[in-house]
Design a protein around this nucleic acid. Sequence first.
DNA 1: CATGTTAAG
DNA 2: CTTAGCATG
Lengths: 317, 317
Amino acid sequence: MSSKTKQKKMADYITTTTDNSKKRARNNDGDDSESKKPKSTQVDLNKINFDCERKSAKGLTWNLKIVSWNVAGLRAWLKKDVVEYLKKENPDIICLQEIKCTEKQMPDEAKLSGYKIYINSGDKAGYSGVALYSKTIPISVRMGKEIKELDDTEGRVIEAEYEKFFLVSTYIPNAGAGLKTLPKRMKWDEEFRKYLKELDTKKPVVLTGDLNVAHEEIDIANPKTNTKSAGFTKEERDNMSLLLEQGFIDTFRILNPEKTGAYTFWTYFHNSRAKNVGWRLDYFISSKRFMDNVCDSTIRNEVLGSDHCPIVFYINV
Amino acid sequence: MSSKTKQKKMADYITTTTDNSKKRARNNDGDDSESKKPKSTQVDLNKINFDCERKSAKGLTWNLKIVSWNVAGLRAWLKKDVVEYLKKENPDIICLQEIKCTEKQMPDEAKLSGYKIYINSGDKAGYSGVALYSKTIPISVRMGKEIKELDDTEGRVIEAEYEKFFLVSTYIPNAGAGLKTLPKRMKWDEEFRKYLKELDTKKPVVLTGDLNVAHEEIDIANPKTNTKSAGFTKEERDNMSLLLEQGFIDTFRILNPEKTGAYTFWTYFHNSRAKNVGWRLDYFISSKRFMDNVCDSTIRNEVLGSDHCPIVFYINV
DNA sequence: CATGTTAAG
DNA sequence: CTTAGCATG
């Protein structure tokens, strides 16, 4: 049974695509002859296998696909043929982090038809912000600011309840240059850990997003020179360990225990991406008891659009 | 006698071109295959007549050419084939306004060989700033901050003394959105007028640059709708009249009394330049008694590079 | 609409 | 290096 047929039956019955298409009725005296083609900033998408051969522990084929992507500014990201990619990937749920815009600022091209869209954009303009796209309407949705355990004024968390699991998409605070916001991060990690522990008592949890930490040495290209860098301090790594000790699994790593060079982020400096000098900062973390539903957890390292790449989670529910 | 021969004998005996060429020795693993050609942003320069047929009142041909240009950010301006234009224009003196950079920030491409370069960059980073390029070394040069009559902390004035005249290049303060800096502008105009009056007692003065005022209705495309706009208020226009009443001449206008549609600035909005919805804000103003030396005062409205175009002054000295 | 900041990553 | 903000024009 192909994924296409599976996905077809879930899609297209709901849309939030507004049609007040912000037509730029501007004072333009017919002088737009220059047709600036932005020249494809995307790789050849035909080389990508969007399906997944792996089965769940119970031998079942996936029937739900989740994509997570730190877009580092949704408006700039949209200009890089990312919608074409998303259409081919065709996930049931899309989690975006660092959208850096409000719902009002969101261009129409971002309002993918077939998805219900939830946005938590936070207070500071142009900073942080997360979005969740879902083909099916979740049982319930909570923004970070509605979650009592969290102090989320910056648009860092969206929680969506589905029949078999909670999905939590997050953009965890960066510890900052010179680690100047490491204390804020430590506080966040603690609160977030408690929140997930509590949530996990109700129903299995799938946590995804930019956790802003490379957990182990295998998860970063230059472990030795980055022990004082935001995202690879002992403090942040230990907090990730604490989270996992609460009964959560790093799904990519458990499926690929020895795989090196598997990163989801490369700084824009020094051609890092071309050299694969990267970090694995984006994860699908699953409640241990939900692992039987997991088919695969993969990294789309070819796909361009921001300094992070998308990651893909295939499950059977 | 061609201007080329004339200019040859003045040129090339002085240069400030430093050769510590800021070579970007960067961590670049041979991945710069993309050779991004910026595609010509300039018009066809061969269509321009860089010479001037007009003679001075005494029947003499020009032997000194001055160009003035508000570049609206020298670093961005440099990317628009402007050096190619300047080489073909080949002026003896170049006055630039709104360079928005310091001497240290100035790219090497801006250090045109054959010219001595003087820079007044002011305090605020990326704001205002003027430069003067001269093939011959002036008798003396004063920056605005060295002129006692002026309070020039923003990099708005360079004064150069030549044998027969003073050249003053200026970028006059904009009255601002909602005219919120009109008081500052009024104060500046008064001080500047006094300064020029004093200077004019010593030697004839040529004032050039962005005076940030369209003097008369003929100097602006939409006089009726701009009476409350910075650059066309009664206050600013009256101050320009006061300056002229002190014994100065608007050289372009005296040579072209009825010429309409002659502008040196077009806002970037609404395709103004393509529609020639512009303002004449850039001038060559001459002491009345120096008018006998003036051959022509022209506008290079075809030449691209900023929201202003260059203006050219041909004199015999 | 364009330029050069700034803060943040 | 890149995004988005802002102030200024």
